[in-house]
C-alpha cells in the first residue's frame, strides 16, 4: 500500500496552486507536508481525496490511478480525509457524526468494534456522545473529525491541520493520539503549519513552497537543517 504522487498540477481558475508536486507515502509511515499559508498543502490532500480535480500529473494508490475519481469512490479504496476546519456536522450529535464516518461500510460488528476503539482513543467523545457536535470545544471537534475519519477504517488517513486553533496542551494530546493511530497500523499523510510538532511525529517530511516541493528528507534530518529551522521553526 503506497501512495505515489507524480508531477501533480492543480489550478483554481487562473491560479496555479500546485506545480508538479511529487511525493511518496510508504506503508506504516507518518509523512508530513509542511509549509506556509498558500503553499499548496491542503490542495495536495484535496487532490488525493478527490475534492479537487488535478489538471495534470498522476496520483496512484496501490498502483491504482486516483486522479479523476469522485471522492465517494476514493473513500471506498481506503483513503479517509479529515478536512481542514474539521468539517464536523454541527447540528448532528457526536454519535450521528461517527455513524456517518462509517457510511461506506456494511459490516455492523466491525463498525461497532472500530467505534469502541475510536472512543477509547478519545474518551472525551464518549462523554459527549449525545450532544450536538456544534457544542463541543475546538479540541473536541478536532478529535471528532479524526475519530469520524477512522470509522471508515482507512488504510491511509489524510489529516489537514489538526492543530489549527487549538491550545498547545490540546495539540500535544492530539499529536500523541496521531502517533497511536499510526502505531496501530494506519498510514498517515499529515498537513501541518505547526512544523515543530509535525516533524516530531513524522517519519518523512516534505516542505512545500508556492506549490512545489522545496525540500524532502527524513523528518529528523529536516528538523535539524538550518533552512527549515530558520523558515519554519522560528529559530534564528
Amino acid at each position: 500500500m503506497t501512495l505515489v504522487i507524480e508531477g501533480l498540477d492543480v489550478h483554481y481558475g487562473a491560479v496555479h496552486a500546485l506545480r508538479g508536486v511529487s511525493l511518496k507515502v510508504e506503508p506504516g509511515q507518518i509523512v508530513t507536508l509542511i509549509g506556509s499559508n498558500g503553499a499548496g498543502k491542503s490542495t495536495t490532500l484535496r487532490a488525493v481525496s478527490g475534492l479537487v480535480k488535478p489538471s495534470g500529473g498522476s496520483i496512484r494508490f496501490d498502483d491504482k490511478p486516483l486522479a479523476g475519481l469522485p471522492p465517494h469512490d476514493i473513500v471506498r479504496l481506503g483513503i479517509a480525509h479529515a478536512p481542514e476546519g474539521r468539517g464536523i456536522f454541527a447540528n448532528l450529535t457526536v454519535h450521528e457524526n461517527l455513524e456517518l464516518g462509517s457510511y461506506i461500510r456494511r459490516d455492523r460488528a466491525g463498525i461497532a468494534d472500530d467505534r469502541d476503539k475510536a472512543l477509547a482513543l478519545f474518551p472525551r467523545l464518549r462523554e459527549r456522545l449525545h450532544q450536538s457536535a456544534g457544542t463541543l470545544s475546538g479540541g473536541e471537534q478536532q478529535m471528532l473529525a479524526i475519530a469520524r475519519a477512522l470509522l471508515a477504517r482507512p488504510r491511509l488517513l489524510l489529516l489537514d491541520e489538526p492543530s489549527l486553533g487549538l491550545a498547545p496542551q490540546i495539540v500535544q494530546v492530539i499529536f500523541g493520539i496521531i502517533r497511536d493511530i499510526n502505531l496501530a497500523g494506519t498510514t498517515i499523510l499529515l498537513v501541518e503549519q505547526n512544523a515543530h510538532m509535525a516533524l516530531k511525529v513524522a517519519h518523512y517530511a516534505y516542505v512545500l513552497e508556492v506549490g512545489a516541493v522545496a525540500m524532502a528528507d527524513k523528518a529528523s534530518v529536516l528538523a535539524a537543517s538550518d533552512a527549515v529551522r530558520k523558515a519554519y521553526l522560528g529559530v534564528h
Partner: peptide, 10 residues
C-alpha cells in the same frame, strides 16, 4: 451540514 465533508465521508 457540510457538503464537502459529506463527500469526504463517501
Amino acid at each position: 451540514e457540510n457538503e464537502l465533508a459529506a463527500e469526504a465521508m463517501g
